[in-house]
Design a protein around this nucleic acid. Structure first.
Length: 673
RNA sequence: GCUGCUGUAGCUCAGUGGUAGAGCGCGUCCUUGGUAAGGACGAGGUCAUGGGUUCAAAUCCCAUCAGCAGCUCCA
């Protein structure tokens, strides 16, 4: 008699010995077909495993749909990969080898570094190991034994990990497969034959335990799927994603240029890219005006005193451009025989006179606020500026438009009373929502950064913090979207709400941000006169709904895969003549459209129509208007839509009206998600 | 900043020790073609920069700069 208890609590009884597969069959033929392996009392077993008779056993049949099935298989594949590397390279030290979103990695340290040229050999060895079909066997060892096992294996990272990271565990598990033994929590698949298809993807550096001061390891990235077809589909998806990379599209569509001679991370906007940027600025400016913001302009530099007061200099010196040392101060230092080393020390200590390229706009706005006496009747004061700031980002972090050294924030600083804080935060969130909605961006996440209760780095009154954190939560709730609350993610000066999106290869970027600040009003001694005729300290809100124009446009290019909606497209429509004979008519239509405010160009080359269409498609022109003798005769254009193709001939006026309404509606029509 | 890879024509790339190639683009000419590439000819490169090895370097070595991936960082 065999009795199994299924995850739903139901019991199934069998008169004779049965395998896992038999149980699956008894439940349904579909399940039997989809079953990958079983789990008896949480231990993975093969499908042909004969279930022990007698006492009831807990059985779970694992299928592809099981959320952990793929991850479990991939983790087992990571073991196989590590084993293969150890067979090929001597003296391999193993670190961590977890599963990640679309695959897995294993951190290793080798005497001679691995390169991508080693991949074929590793993959071949992995295939051999899988063909051996040795099971993954779990071994539990008491703490002291476990340390000894790792010492015997000469796996120093594992020893350290047990001694520090797993200091509270009395018993530790290992998994053994053939000669390969590894400290591992599990679970694993019952045998490697469940690894359908795998591929090594890349190799990169990573620090042991993520600590820059520790050993640098080599991280082998790979992925695995249950079938070759799934792996192929995944790889194709990666290729497709690369095609919408904003760096590739930015070059192909001529949106921006980053020039070696100008400097790393410094963006040159081409006319087309500048157009998109300007349109976005105009768009948000209109909403700022509606919300009662005042726009201001401030310079790109400020005296060091300003940043000493704000606290930004010298504390963030590593991420700032070197100061512009005051001319007279510099000659004075020279007269005193100051050496380079001494100058450097003076900079480190912040004891230097000169100017700084502004790393943020707040100090300038603060001085504008402080330039007049303010009454509670004036508040809230909302100063906004498309302010360009410069930060010395680490060279290895810079790339494309998403991480640059000079960027323009759609910045604003709100000076508010405690009572106004909640409502103003909601207003800020509203702006972010307006932007995401207008772009049809739904795939973003919201993070409320709260203070870490165990840390003392935060400035300001804890009661105010509580109020501000609650105000942030309430503001976030107005989005009607899930948000995460992240303790420890607040800035030292106040809580914040961040908006995060992913780029084409899955990297996360913060776009919009709304931050409460109790610190700067304090440091600058800001005041307003209250209704009680006494001075009070305002609270500041920093907010940037786009984040920065650079990063936002970078993400936006990928979001639209280069196909901007009509209202944002630098070139909205293009006239394509069928032959030279229609050039005159084409030019007439062109000027008619231009007069109607359409951004139109004409392609009058003596190319065949097919070639002109192809070029227009590749340049992602929203509408192509084909004009030939037939159109000239009827006063029409034959419209071709970037997405839907040929729409047939319509009168020129009708085409103009169509475009104008699409622009007015800010319609978003995307070719793919 | 760290590790690894990469840097050849405007763009994408081939070229592994014997003084440079393709496709696209660009120019000129021919072609006058109705919904994703018509044809011919031509111009265009101190092979990222600076050193070194060698009779000889795009090719091998070192440094610098830049790009890519990851790590670390991001007021």
């Amino acid at each position: 008699m065999t009795t199994v208890k299924l995850p739903d609590g139901s019991l199934k009884e069998f008169d004779s010995a049965v395998s896992v597969k038999d149980v699956a069959k008894s439940i349904g033929s579909r399940l039997a077909k989809d079953a990958l392996w079983g789990e008896i009392d949480l231990q993975p077993v093969e499908l042909d495993y004969e279930i022990p008779q007698g006492e009831p056993v807990n059985l779970k049949i694992i299928t592809k749909k099981d959320p952990n099935a793929l991850a479990t298989m991939r983790h087992s594949c990571a073991h196989v990969m590590a084993r293969a590397v150890m067979r090929i390279k001597p003296g391999v030290q193993l670190a961590f080898g977890p599963t990640i979103e679309n695959g897995f990695y294993y951190d290793v340290e080798c005497d001679e570094p691995l390169t991508e040229e080693d991949f074929p050999a590793i993959e071949k060895e992995m295939a051999k190991i899988i063909a051996l079909d040795e099971p993954f066997e779990r071994l539990d060892r008491p703490r002291a034994d476990a340390i000894q096992v790792c010492k015997d294996l000469k796996q120093d990272f594992k020893v350290e990990h047990i001694e520090t990271g797993l200091a509270d565990d009395d018993s530790l598990s290992f998994y053994q497969q053939g000669e390969f033994l590894d400290l591992c929590r599990g679970p694993h698949i019952p045998s490697p034959r469940r690894i359908g298809a795998f591929k090594l993807l890349s190799i990169a550096g990573a620090y042991w335990k993520g600590d820059q001061s520790r050993e640098q390891l080599q991280r082998l990235y790979a992925t695995a799927f249950f079938t070759q077809a799934e792996l192929d589909a995944h790889l194709e998806l990666l290729e497709e994603a690369k095609k919408r990379d904003h760096r590739v599209l930015g070059k192909r569509l001529g949106l921006f240029h980053i020039d070696e001679m100008v400097g790393q991370g410094l963006v040159l906007w081409t006319p087309k890219g500048s157009f998109v940027r300007q349109k976005l600025q105009d768009f948000i400016s209109e909403h700022l005006q509606r919300q009662g913001y005042d726009q201001v302009f401030t310079p790109h530099i400020g005296k060091l005193d300003l940043y000493k007061t704000s606290g930004h200099f010298p504390y963030y010196q590593d991420s700032q451009y070197t100061p512009l040392v005051d001319r007279e101060y510099l000659s004075q230092l020279a007269e005193e025989g100051c050496t380079c080393g001494e100058l450097s020390n003076l900079m480190n200590e912040g004891e230097i006179e000169g100017y700084l390229l502004k790393p943020m706009n707040c100090p300038h706005h603060i001085r504008l606020f402080a330039s007049e006496q303010r009454s509670y009747r004036d508040l809230p004061i909302r100063l906004s500026e498309f302010g360009t700031v410069y930060r010395w980002e680490q060279s290895g972090e810079i790339g494309g438009l998403t991480r640059v050294r000079g960027f323009t924030q759609d910045d604003a600083h709100l000076f508010v009373t405690q009572e106004q804080l909640g409502q103003e935060l909601i207003g800020c969130i509203e702006l972010v929502k307006i932007i995401f909605d207008a772009m049809g961006m739904e795939d973003y996440s919201v993070r409320v950064g709260l203070r870490d209760p165990d840390s003392s780095k935060y400035v300001g009154d804890p009661q105010n913090w509580d109020l501000a954190e609650q105000a942030c939560r309430e503001a976030a709730q107005t989005l009607g979207k899930d948000f995460s609350e992240d303790p420890g993610e607040a800035a030292f000066y106040g809580p914040k709400i961040d908006f995060v999106v992913k780029d084409c290869i899955g990297r996360k970027w913060q776009l919009g941000t709304v931050q409460v600040d109790y610190n700067l009003p304090e440091r600058f001694g800001l005041e307003y006169i209250g209704s009680d005729n006494k001075p009070h300290r305002p609270i500041m809100i920093h907010r940037a709904p786009f984040g920065s124009m650079e990063r936002f446009i970078g993400v936006l290019i990928e979001h639209f895969a280069g196909s901007f909606p009509l209202w944002l497209a630098p070139e909205q429509a293009r006239i394509l003549t069928v032959s030279d004979k229609s050039e005159e008519y084409g030019k007439r239509v062109e000027s008619q459209m231009r007069d109607a405010g359409i951004r139109v160009k004409g392609d009058y080359r003596s190319e065949k129509l097919g070639a002109k269409i192809r070029d227009g498609q590749l340049e992602m022109i929203p509408y192509m208007m084909i004009v030939g003798p037939r159109d000239a005769e009827n006063g029409t254009v034959s419209i071709r839509d970037r997405i839907d193709g040929d729409l047939g001939a319509i009168p020129v006026e009708e085409a103009i009206a169509k475009f104008q309404s699409e622009v007015a509606e800010k319609t978003v029509r995307r070719t793919s998600s």
